[in-house]
Simulated assay, not measured.
Amino acid sequence: MAAHPFTVGFDLDMTLIDSRPGIKAAYEELSARTGTYIDADLAVTRLGPPLEQEIREWFPEERVAEISDVYRGLYPEHAISGALAMPGAREAIAGVQAAGGRAIVVTAKYEPNAELHLTHLGIDADAVIGSLWAKAKAEALREHGARIYVGDHTGDVLGAHTAGALSVAVPTGPCDASELRAAGADVLLGDLTTFPSWLAGYLANGADAASV
């Protein structure tokens, strides 16, 4: 891996992308295929944790693995095209790279589907690591040397802190600003549109490779 002065990690759903329209469509298709009622509008208000957690709300435990695989198979056709880039997402990634850093995505989403989203939306991350949630995100953050992790969920704050990284939070997902503060977010931004200027100021104030 080439040397870079710093690495910043980003969550995917409701941090970099608004995947709710596509995920709703995927759940509706899953419901139609299985004949099982799923409140897709409710499901998309709970994005962040692993898929299996939501599947357990609608299916018995013995079917969770099977149904999760069915959903992931439906996802590319039904969920990718409906997703939108969050305001400032492309600029946040580009801002890290313009400063000489690496921008990686660490997400609970199935990695091939996460990559499809980024490709479709033209978000050019340096690496994508999937199927990691909360504390487990620290595995990838440590492996890639990320000292900042940006996310919208209290689980993202936990992942950052477990890795010893600075937690930058945006209240653009299911967790509001007070929840993110209570979880211990180190920095709270309104959304990603202010991230490039925050990062520039952070670096200008003396942050270096050892602290970023």
Rank of each mutant, 00 (worst) to 15 (best):
P50H: 06
L188R: 07
T36D: 00
P171M: 09
G159R: 02
N113V: 04
A209I: 03
W58G: 12
R63D: 13
L84P: 08
N205A: 15
E139H: 15
V128I: 14
S68W: 03
I80L: 06
S197L: 11
A99V: 05
A85N: 02
E61V: 11
I17K: 03
V44Y: 00
R20I: 04
G206R: 12
G155C: 10
A43W: 00
A146P: 00
V70Q: 06
E179Q: 14
G35D: 04
P171T: 08
E77K: 13
I129H: 04
A94G: 03
A108R: 02
Y202W: 15
D39V: 01
D41H: 04
R72Y: 00
E143Q: 08
G201D: 12
R142N: 14
L51D: 00
E52Q: 10
G95Y: 04
G101M: 10
I55R: 08
I93Q: 03
L84I: 01
S81H: 11
D13G: 09
T162V: 13
R46C: 15
I23C: 06
A89M: 05
Y202T: 15
L199V: 10
G73Y: 01
H117K: 06
V96Q: 06
F59L: 02
G145N: 11
P5H: 09
A177P: 12
F10V: 05
D208K: 01
G82R: 05
A182Y: 14
P50W: 05
Q97Y: 03
M86G: 03
E77Q: 12
V70H: 11
P76Y: 03
A182Q: 15
A169W: 10
D69Q: 12
D208T: 15
Q53M: 09
E139M: 11
A43Q: 08
L74S: 01
A79K: 03
A210F: 12
A169L: 14
R90D: 07
K137W: 04
L42K: 09
A25H: 11
A207Q: 08
Y110A: 00
F59I: 07
V106C: 11
I23H: 02
V170Q: 03
D41Y: 10
L51F: 12
V106Y: 00
H153R: 03
V212G: 10
L180S: 14
L158K: 14
A210R: 06
I123M: 15
S131K: 04
G101K: 03
T34I: 02
G155D: 07
S68F: 02
W198Y: 09
E52W: 05
E111C: 07
E143P: 09
L188W: 00
T36W: 03
F6M: 14
P171Y: 02
V96A: 04
V170G: 01
E29D: 13
L118D: 08
A138K: 05
E28G: 12
D191G: 09
E62L: 10
V70N: 02
G122V: 10
E52H: 14
A138H: 09
I23K: 00
P5S: 14
